[in-house]
Design a protein around this nucleic acid. Structure first.
Lengths: 205, 205
DNA sequence: GACATTAGTTACCATTGCGTACGAAACTCC
DNA sequence: GGAGTTTCGTACGCAATGGTAACTAATGTC
């Protein structure tokens, strides 16, 4: 017989949910960058005091690292899953781009969380950057694999190569997100990415 | 009769050359971002003390603003001029991309100075970002104009539109420069941009 | 050579922000 | 209810850093 009773560990229970703290951290690092956020503010946003966060995460750099991982889980993974799940490649790419633009032009957060993390100067900057490098490469590879399939199935022209298409998509969106950061409007960026899609897909116009 | 004698202004002459100070500031903001640099360090790099810089530039935010302008003058303008001067459009775009990659993967500085400025949280952040927004748009327009000419001259296919091509180039290179920041190698990025060029130009392969 | 003007330097202040020590609180297990 | 364990909040240390005040140094002008 399975019981629903959760075995609680000894000791005083946490006064906050770590993942929720990370969500706040993501929001803040995203908008203000590593140096632009102090741990105190994140703590206040989670209704807890600073030392509680330090106990849970160690130090600010680690908090950024965990926030980046959390970002990948919350924002990156679903976007990627949706891309994979959409059978129409044109629609898959378009939606991916549109979602990216929409999250990059939100009210509270603008631009790209990963760029903010990459430019920060935390102690673990090397670690974070190589993590990001892997992430960019991995994303491009996922795109490439899908493009490869589409080409094999005859639904996409053979050129440009799947690999180039994948990297193109990644690079392109970074540029778009930076332009979001400097204040280019959502409307304009949406138009832009939509006009990029046929290029990525190699469609003859 | 014109004399070469320079009329010096009254008062003690400056102990450093402002533009040189800006050059150092560019280097440092570029590599470490706004918050990652303290005025003291810039001052040391110019062999002068902090208050001298404050006297000359006002405050740190203004220093960043001037550094960005200086960057545009020293790095942006020549690159743009070379693009305009090169008659072969394929070569013009290729060189522009290659130079961008090379400066983004230097030993001392990596990534994009403008991105670093955009993500910093200076007092004048709004001013700087809208300046950058204009810059990005203006660059894209310059590219577009040139593409337009090439199309009119029959040296380039009509699609994609000149406007899209221009923005594509700008966005693309931002992505590449971010990947440079996170440690992707120059070699790899050079390969990437070279494979992007035909796409931008709309060449059928 | 005295004056006006501009710049540089030393020394300092105030703030900010990371990280921690320590005692109190909350909870499990026996 | 006591022992053991984990966490919380208050209060603090402390280093870094933006910015300034006051004095000194260098130059043109008369």
């Amino acid at each position: 017989m399975v019981t629903n009773v959760v075995k609680r560990p000894p000791g005083r229970p946490k006064g906050f949910i770590p993942d929720e703290a990370l969500d706040r951290a993501v929001e803040m690092f995203w908008e203000h960058g590593f140096e632009g956020v102090d741990v105190e503010r994140i703590a206040r946003a989670v209704n807890v005091t600073k030392p509680a966060l330090y106990r849970a995460f160690g130090d600010k750099s680690t908090l950024l690292l965990r926030a980046v991982e959390r970002y990948a889980l919350i924002y990156g993974a679903p976007k990627m899953a949706a891309f994979q799940a959409e059978p129409d490649i044109h629609k898959a790419v378009t939606t991916f781009c549109e979602v990216t633009v929409n999250t990059a032009t939100g009210d509270a957060r603008s631009g790209c969380m990963l760029a903010a993390a990459a430019l920060g100067r935390s102690e673990r900057v090397t670690e974070i950057r190589s993590w990001l490098a892997n992430g960019f490469t991995a994303s491009a590879d996922v795109f490439a694999k899908r493009f490869e399939q589409e080409v094999k199935a005859g639904r996409l022209p053979r050129t440009p190569s799947a690999k180039v298409r994948g990297r193109l998509l990644v690079d392109l969106l970074q540029g778009v997100q930076l332009r979001a950061k400097v204040g280019i409007t959502r409307k304009e960026l949406l138009e832009d990415v939509r006009s990029y899609v046929p290029l990525i897909l190699g469609e003859r116009i």
